[in-house]
Amino acid sequence: MKKITTSFITFGLIFGLASNSELSAQTLDGKQIIEKVYNRPTPPNQTSTLTMTLINKSGETRVRTIKQNTKDFGDVEKNIMFFITPADVKNTSFMNWTYTDATKSDDQWIYLPALKKTKRISSESKSDYFMGSDFTYDDLGDRKVEDDTHKLIGKETLDGKECYIVESVSKDKSYMYSKTVTWVVKDHFIELKKEFYDEEGEKLKVQHIKKYGDFDGFYIKILEEMVNVQDKHSTSLFFENINISVNLPEDLFTERMLMRGI
């Protein structure tokens, strides 16, 4: 199965069901565990509706709804998103192409209905936050294994599941997180929980998968939460209408569909 290198929201939510119990019985180091997380298989097609809820420290909420389609073409994975709410971004759409060739940057386009224009945008701003949420584009994608140094620091049972705990430190000293600590489910190499530490080494955010389900042999995230413990702000992602049994046509991932909308 193709290596997932995509850097957008859909691609962070799929967990392969392939049993790794034999492997987990072996002694794995931190890097090997993260490699197995990174190399999980994914379904070739997926559609879903995402409701993203932003909650500030006063409890006030802002809700964004997005419909999205993803297809794996082998050498490239294409994702198209249509913004449904709020009203001021309605009919905005976004398309992302991610390549298996790790040296190749993602290609991204945004269609702004008010301007009636499709614009190519830069895909390099990984540390920017997605739509005012607590997720950066980097958080939502798959960070390359080689970008960090990984160390197995323990084992723990979390939500009734046995987990490895892996600490990852970026090789790039300017990276926005000084380290991350990830709870990986032993059986399926799912990142069940992840803590993000800021440049001063203080805990910044905690990501937690609250619910996931089995869809035709793949575990898929249904509800997850990211809490910024410093700002007391949180974001939940709730995926509905998940369908991986469709065969999405290639011409769905074109400028024509960006402009036409869903």
């Binding site: 940057s105 290609d107 614009k119 190519r120 830069s122 895909s123 390099e124 701003s125």
Partner: peptide
């Protein structure tokens, strides 16, 4: 035309 090179459009 429009093209991305090293994060620059």
């Amino acid at each position: 035309f429009s093209s991305q090179i090293k994060g620059f459009i």
